[in-house]
Amino acid sequence: MGFEKFGRKSYTAQTKVAEFVDRLAQGEICATRCRSCGRIYFPPRADCSFCLGDAMEWVKIPETGKLASFTRVYYAPAGFEADVPYTLALVNFGDVKVFGRLSSAVEESTIKIGMDLKPIVLEMPDGQITYEFIPVEECGR
């Protein structure tokens, strides 16, 4: 599967880390870890800028993280109009931070910086695949 499947609209088809999308389809959200120096990267990278190594392994990101910031978007850039309003979020998982969307089902008034969130995989009707964050309390599935 190519990287063009990632997100509502991908701008990149070819990348050495396209396996991220295959793993997403398996229900895993992964970072990469440098086999030489042990640094963990999200977004996943094929190359380590610290030790210049290019031997990476996939590691699952932690189950839960804390909301670092968010915004509810009411005016979309071209190509995203059908999704508004949607909530963008940055979530801190300790070793890594992950940028994405918070489930639109979460009311803006209930969103608090620092709240516990869990990432889930989301397959869209058009075949695109992504992840989004949901509050930990709602993780019944």
Binding site: S10, V73, L88, F99, I113
Partner: peptide, 21 residues
């Protein structure tokens, strides 16, 4: 463009995230 733009990002949204913090 690989890891942020596919979520529908734009400049006001990024600065809004700074404002929230």
């Amino acid at each position: 463009i690989m890891w942020e733009a596919p979520f529908g990002t734009m400049m006001p949204a990024y600065y809004a995230m700074h404002a929230q913090v």
